[in-house]
Simulated scan of single mutants.
Amino acid sequence: MKKIILLISFIMMGVNLLGIDEKAEMKKLILKIRDRSPENFIMISQNGTDIFFQEKDKVDKELLGAIDGITQESLFYGYPKYGSRTPYEDKRSLLKKLRILKSLNKVVMTVNYTNSSYGRWRSRGLAEDDEFLNYCPNEREAAGILEDVCFENKNNIMSLSQAKNFLYLLNPMNFKYKKEYIDALSQTKYDVIIIDMYFNDIKLTMKDIEKLREKPQGGKRLVIGYFSIGEAEDYRGYWKEGWDRKLPNWISHENENWKGNYIVRYWSKEWGKIVNEMLSKFIDTGFDGVFLDTIDTYESFEKEE
């Protein structure tokens, strides 16, 4: 009986005792998403830049080959709090690695959290120095639309490498109706729009995506869907009644920084099934690609260890 109790205790403590390499498992998940996607389907990762590196500064070329772009939040502004200038010691290592990835022909995008005119101007200038794309949301929730578009152009954008700018809008809370939301987005002049697949609980349609793909000044753009692959969100359709009271064993715990977001054991079969179903929806709705957020979840497990 004591042996059984001890075994159960080990399981409750976490799968790390069974030899799970969380970083390697996240890499596997990203590669599976690539394998299940159409040939020209765009994949952009956010944060977790270390996952593209092995010992020292050696690049994981297999994983990098699966990704079209890398996004880093708060590289210049927004850490440790919204509006603050990111300390040099916190961005130094990140900047070095992002420059390496840029040199390997990957698009690097920065999301800096500041609404001051100087902060936006400074973020833009620092990003341009390294030929990074830059966007500054009006708030931490990335709910507003910044009207000032850098390097506006009429060209057709058929690949991420052709983009000169991007819009990062993850929360449509400032809009009352879906039509209002789609109309506002369609009038923006960005080359790339990164948005959620849903307006509140209403899923966007292929017709919506086709409308958003047309730039008002002429030319086509890319419409990319937000896809959290390291955390489950309690407002998604896959969230089942009762999980609020008792989490399934493949969900670890709630993210203390984002209410309603739960860190998952993303190597589990249950989560893999949800990821596959969500990916199919992005493809069937006509999105040009997916924006993979929370890939840095593996760091949470490493800290626990």
Rank of each mutant, 00 (worst) to 15 (best):
M1H: 07
K2E: 11
I4E: 08
I5F: 13
S9W: 10
I11E: 07
M13Q: 08
V15S: 13
V15N: 12
N16Q: 08
N16V: 04
G19E: 03
G19C: 01
I20R: 06
E22W: 08
K23S: 02
A24Q: 07
R34F: 03
R34D: 14
R34S: 02
R34C: 11
R36C: 11
I42C: 03
I44N: 04
I51F: 00
E55S: 11
D60M: 11
K61C: 13
L63C: 14
S74Y: 00
L75N: 06
Y79C: 04
Y79Q: 05
Y82S: 01
G83I: 00
S84R: 05
E89H: 14
L98Q: 01
I100P: 00
V107M: 12
V108I: 15
V108A: 01
T110D: 02
Y118N: 07
R120I: 15
R124D: 06
R124C: 05
G125N: 06
F132D: 01
N138P: 10
N138L: 15
E141K: 08
G144H: 03
L146A: 03
L146I: 14
D148N: 12
V149D: 04
C150E: 05
F151R: 04
A163V: 02
K164I: 02
Y168W: 15
K179T: 05
I182E: 08
L185H: 02
S186H: 00
T188R: 01
V192G: 00
I202K: 05
M206Q: 13
K207L: 07
D208A: 04
I209C: 10
I209H: 09
L212A: 00
L212E: 01
E214T: 05
P216I: 11
R221P: 10
L222N: 09
V223Q: 10
V223A: 10
I224L: 12
G225N: 15
S228A: 15
E231Y: 15
D234Y: 06
K240C: 14
W243N: 03
D244G: 15
L247P: 14
L247Y: 13
E256H: 05
W258Y: 13
G260A: 04
N261W: 14
K269Y: 11
E270N: 08
W271D: 07
V275L: 07
N276Y: 06
N276R: 05
M278E: 14
L279M: 11
S280C: 09
K281A: 14
I283K: 03
T285E: 08
G286P: 12
F287R: 04
G289M: 03
G289V: 02
V290D: 08
F291K: 06
D293G: 14
F301R: 05
E302Q: 08
K303G: 08
E305N: 11
